[in-house]
Structure formats: structure tokens, C-alpha cells
């Protein structure tokens, strides 16, 4: 190896070591980092719930066609599921157990409700006012929970 290349090699190895140190099998964020992730998850879930509501509302007014609504809701359901899954896989830091249970409960309800909306859309039942109200309420709850 040429002498001039040695510092570069050392730098690359150091960078790799740092990178590996940050990637364990289980991600273990500190309390502050976990709060950030939880808030982000709530915001994302809120976005999916609001999308589902908009899609269903538009479908009810006959402003979209069925396949468009289905695709929108299916994608919202998938995204919401991914948000919940990602957060539930984080190691909850000490002192956040109650908050975690609350957040994961909200996320679980979001997934279920968006899934229900998808089921309604596929079977063509758009004018379920109760479901729309539920989506509305959950959307508000999610927004309030996320600081």
C-alpha cells in the first residue's frame, strides 16, 4: 500500500465502524429519540386516516371511481400498518411504558379503521356516515396525541 493512501483507508474503516455501531439488530433509542419517533408515527398515521376519510368522502359524493378509491385506501392501509409495525419493533425506553401502550393502541385503532374503510370501499359501501365520523374522531385524537 502506498503511504499516501493510508490515512484514507483508516478514515474509511473508522467510518464503517461508526456506522456498524449504530445498527444493532434491535434499535434501542433513548427516551427523547423514542418520543420523536412516536410523534412522527402518530403524524404519519393521522395522515393515512385523513387520506382514508377524504377518499371515502369523495367516493360517497360520486367524485371518484371504485378502483381509484380502492387503490387509495389499500395504500393507506398498507402505510398505516407499516407505521405501527415499525414503532412496535422499537425497544421502549424505561419510563415510557404507559406512553408506548397508549401510542400503540392509537396506531392499532388507526390500522383497524383504515382497514375497515378499505373493506367498505371494496364492497362498494361508501355511505356509512358512522365510519366517516369515526375516522374524523380518530384523526383528531391522533393530531392531539402528536405534539
Amino acid at each position: 500500500m502506498k503511504r499516501s493512501q493510508r490515512p484514507a483507508v483508516v478514515a474509511v474503516l473508522l467510518a464503517l465502524a461508526l456506522l456498524l455501531a449504530g445498527c444493532g439488530v434491535v434499535s434501542r433509542p433513548g427516551p427523547a429519540a423514542w418520543d420523536d419517533r412516536a410523534a412522527q408515527a402518530l403524524t404519519d398515521a393521522g395522515s393515512e386516516v385523513a387520506t382514508a376519510r377524504l377518499a371515502l368522502e369523495s367516493a360517497r359524493k360520486g367524485r371518484t371511481w371504485s378502483s381509484y378509491t380502492t387503490v387509495l385506501l389499500a395504500e393507506a392501509e398498507e402505510a398505516a400498518g407499516k407505521v405501527e409495525e415499525d414503532l412496535s419493533r422499537l425497544q421502549v425506553p424505561a419510563g415510557r411504558a404507559d406512553a408506548a401502550a397508549h401510542v400503540l393502541d392509537l396506531l392499532g385503532r388507526a390500522v383497524d379503521l383504515v382497514g375497515e374503510a378499505r373493506a367498505h370501499a371494496v364492497s362498494g359501501k361508501y355511505d356509512d356516515q358512522a365510519l366517516l365520523d369515526q375516522l374524523d374522531r380518530l384523526s383528531d385524537e391522533l393530531q392531539q396525541a402528536a405534539p
Binding site: G46, A50, T51, R53, A55
Partner: peptide, 18 residues
């Protein structure tokens, strides 16, 4: 206002439907 983040092409078109 609704707090929706755009992640899909379907969402891009949704305001036109509305």
C-alpha cells in the same frame, strides 16, 4: 389543513376529485 402527507400518486390526484 387535514395534515395529510403525500406518499402515493393516488393522493396527488385526490384534490382534483374533491
Amino acid at each position: 389543513p387535514a395534515g395529510v402527507a403525500v406518499e402515493t400518486l393516488g393522493q396527488v390526484g385526490l384534490p382534483v376529485a374533491v
